[in-house]
Structure formats: structure tokens, C-alpha cells
Design a binder for these strands. Structure first.
Length: 156
DNA sequence: GCCAACGTTGGC
DNA sequence: GCCAACGTTGGC
């Protein structure tokens, strides 16, 4: 089983929205590397951190589970969508996604500043300067360290 | 196939 | 709102 970190802008869709919906399609990813992770690398049952970006503060907010196999992102075919892609067709979809299922919120949000201070997270892709990739694999040690931090009191 | 220009991401 | 860093586009 693999671990992932998946970013979303908190105003657009947050962990609370996923909690309400129980599951959702992870639409709108328009980066090839992130697409390849979703299309080729994810497996049903993998776990992912739901990361709030453009938040105050940004950070790890919850846990979700990958469901099913990869699907064509329906928004690429919707002319009125921000994510419409005129070069994509139903015969040859360009963008793929997974359905994700709410597992739980973290006891408290682990901010990006806090993650930077965790030794086990030193090499995390999301924390590297200039990193913009919205979906990244997490090592087990990184996953464990973030969850552990969420159980501790802040500054503790 | 190079690379400048442009658009986007996302922390701050 | 700023802007560094990055990805994409398109002229050549």
C-alpha cells in the first residue's frame, strides 16, 4: 500500500466538504506528473493526506482513501468548466482522476511550518523550495511522522 | 528542438 | 497582493 499527499485549495474544497460528501472525484488536476500518479501509480486502498493549500495556515488536514481504478476526469469534457480541455476527447481522454473517500480529520491541522521542523519530513517533495506538484507520494516515515504530530499538542 | 514569453501555483 | 519557481506554449 502506498501513501500520498494531495493538495487542494481550501476555499475550493476542504476536508470538511469531503467529510460532508463522504467521497468525491478528485477533479481538476492538470499537471502531467500528478496525472500519472493518479492514473498509473495509485491503487485502491492507498491512503492520502488531504492537504489544504492557500489556507491560514496551509497544512495536513485529514486522511482519505483511494477508491477504485482511474477514471477520465469528466470536467475535461465540460465546455463551461474551468478545467475544460479542447484537446481531450472521450475516445482519448487526457486527464485522469481517482475517487477518494473520507476517512477522518486529523485531530488538529499540521501546518507546513510544523512539517518543516519534523526531521523525518526533511525530504518531503511538498516542502521543497518551488515545489508545486499537487499530488506527491509520501514515504511511510513521513506519513507516520505527520500523523504522530497531529496527535501532539502544538508546540509540544 | 531551443528558449523566451507567458500563465499558474502557492507560501508568505 | 507579491513574487519566485515552475510548466506550457509557440515562433523560429
Amino acid at each position: 500500500m502506498k501513501y500520498w499527499l494531495m493538495k487542494n485549495e481550501v476555499e475550493d474544497y476542504s476536508i470538511d466538504d469531503l467529510k460532508r460528501d463522504k467521497k468525491t472525484l478528485w477533479t481538476g488536476v492538470r499537471n502531467y506528473q500528478a496525472r500519472n500518479f493518479m492514473r498509473d501509480e495509485m491503487q485502491p486502498g492507498d491512503l492520502a493526506i488531504f492537504y489544504h493549500s492557500n489556507a491560514e495556515p496551509s497544512g495536513a488536514a485529514g486522511i482519505m482513501k483511494i477508491r477504485g481504478k482511474s477514471l477520465a476526469d469528466p470536467t475535461q469534457f465540460e465546455k463551461t468548466s474551468d478545467y475544460y480541455d479542447e484537446k481531450a476527447s472521450h475516445e482519448k481522454p487526457r486527464w485522469f482522476l481517482r475517487e477518494v473517500e473520507f476517512v477522518r480529520k486529523l485531530k488538529r491541522l499540521v501546518s507546513i511550518q510544523e512539517m518543516r521542523e519534523i526531521p523525518a519530513c526533511r525530504d518531503m517533495l511538498t516542502l521543497q523550495k518551488g515545489s508545486r506538484l499537487s499530488i506527491t507520494p509520501l514515504k511511510k516515515g513521513e506519513w507516520d511522522a505527520i500523523l504522530k504530530a497531529s496527535e501532539k499538542n502544538p508546540r509540544g
